[in-house]
Nucleic acid binder design. Structure first.
Lengths: 250, 250
DNA sequence: GTTATCTGCTTGTCTGACAAGTTAGCCGCA
DNA sequence: TGCGGCTAACTTGTCAGACAAGCAGATAAC
């Protein structure tokens, strides 16, 4: 069903208008500070109503590319495109994100986060980690799903950095790999020891963080993520790049 | 001038509506797949016109939180909020980003990136780093600005991971701190030795990456970022959290 | 010369209408 | 009864016109 060829839908007008404007901004044709054409001009230019133009501009505002000022006009934002990080490059063919690349970015960040958490964790932080950890222990015995607790454990680690931005970014990264945690904790995951292995790595991370051993926390996090990737039959973090290496062309 | 208290502006209606909806989604009150109230219902609910509601929804669509289907209604997107990372938490008072927090996130990531770059760099990657490095050397002698070359050096390091996602994310993070590189390379920066210190750290990073010494590359990157922060009179990365710790209230 | 006002332009908001797409149910028919 | 097609109701998409609010520059008054 999912593989049925989707019938081509007539593109929404607002999509076309906002894409056109975004192209002109990305191409440098409009530089930060520049004023966009007025809504009326765009209506004439694109042959659409003001409602469509306003919706297109609303989208660019949401993306941080444009700022509007009543009575003045719309302007290319000073830091156009610097407020948002999109997982898929804007403009690229909307292919699915490469999970190996995501895992690798997570490896890079989570290791540093664990290191920082080891230096800063408070008693409360450690308590917040013990909860999910115990849930996963329990799931190990009962054979239950515990991907939610898994998620919570990693959130607790990030929270121990006491840096809200780091915390939010790690939550973002974790959300990307949420589905990939399921096979660790499903029936087969328990049977094949994937769950037990993951939990052992969690405990190693926790122990290092609790001990305040930054280097050990980093190693434990690295070990956990590379192992998790290999459980998903990916290879990351090594000497070989995982991404589609496109050096040849350019 | 910048410190003048900005007069409070009446919030735009569409902002309020979209914030309200986003809150309900973030709070889990509306889960992916749920249908949003119809536009007409929202008009009654919020006491605004349909134009305002549509603009609010357009914003949420741009952020990837909702999808709309003509004739069907608006729905919470399957991966709501997972396609975008916003530097400022959506819904929070739009205060400026805390530069210390940004620096710390960059510290966490860039150290890991340098480590990975040391393992994967090719001859071409090293050549791409030598260019900006030489430019900065030249600027050291001439007293010129070289923040652009500084930026390029860090881009080249990220590029050596051969992971496009990592590369794009580091570009994003670098863009955040672009302005903060200026005082390193301005007249005072040269005079007070900030430029020379930064360049020495760059060279240390490069040497470690060129030697393929992952641990040394990591340490050099950490050293560079903590030193850069302290040149800006920030303290990051240590045992003390940098963020506005708001644990007390909630 | 300085201040106050006016005018025109721009975005923000409201209202009403129709087009296009979907769902559900009704109706007629075999 | 079971089925097919049709209609009606509802939803989002688009259009048009209007007024309010905010801003800049020109104009008039002092």
């Amino acid at each position: 069903m999912a593989s049925d060829t989707l019938i081509a839908r007539p593109p929404k007008l607002a999509d076309a208008v906002s894409a056109s404007l975004q192209d002109r901004i990305s191409a440098g044709e409009l530089v930060p500070g520049d004023r966009l054409p007025t809504e009326k001009q765009m209506c004439d230019r694109f042959g659409v109503s003001r409602a469509v133009v306003r919706e297109a501009i609303a989208r660019l505002k949401a993306d941080g590319y444009v700022e509007t000022h009543q009575g003045l006009g719309a302007f290319v934002a000073k830091d156009a495109g610097r407020t948002n990080f999109r997982l898929v490059a804007p403009g690229s063919a909307a292919g699915p994100v490469d999970l190996a690349q995501v895992f690798e970015l997570r490896l890079v960040t989570e290791a540093g986060v664990a290191q920082m958490a080891a230096l800063r964790r408070t008693r409360e932080d450690l308590a917040a980690m013990r909860g999910p950890l115990a849930q996963m222990d329990e799931a190990l015995r009962s054979g239950d799903q515990a991907s939610e607790a898994d998620d919570a454990f990693h959130r607790a680690v990030a929270s121990a950095t006491h840096n809200p931005l780091v915390e939010r970014f790690m939550a973002f990264m974790n959300a990307q790999v949420r589905e990939s945690r399921v096979p660790t904790w499903d029936h087969e995951g328990h049977a094949l020891g994937r769950a037990a292995a993951a939990q052992a790595e969690h405990v190693a991370m926790f122990d290092a963080i609790a001990a305040g051993d930054a280097a050990a926390a980093r190693r434990a996090a690295e070990q956990h993520l590379t192992a998790a990737a290999s459980r998903l039959e990916m290879t990351i973090g090594g000497q070989e790049p995982t991404g589609r290496v496109t050096n040849a062309g350019e």
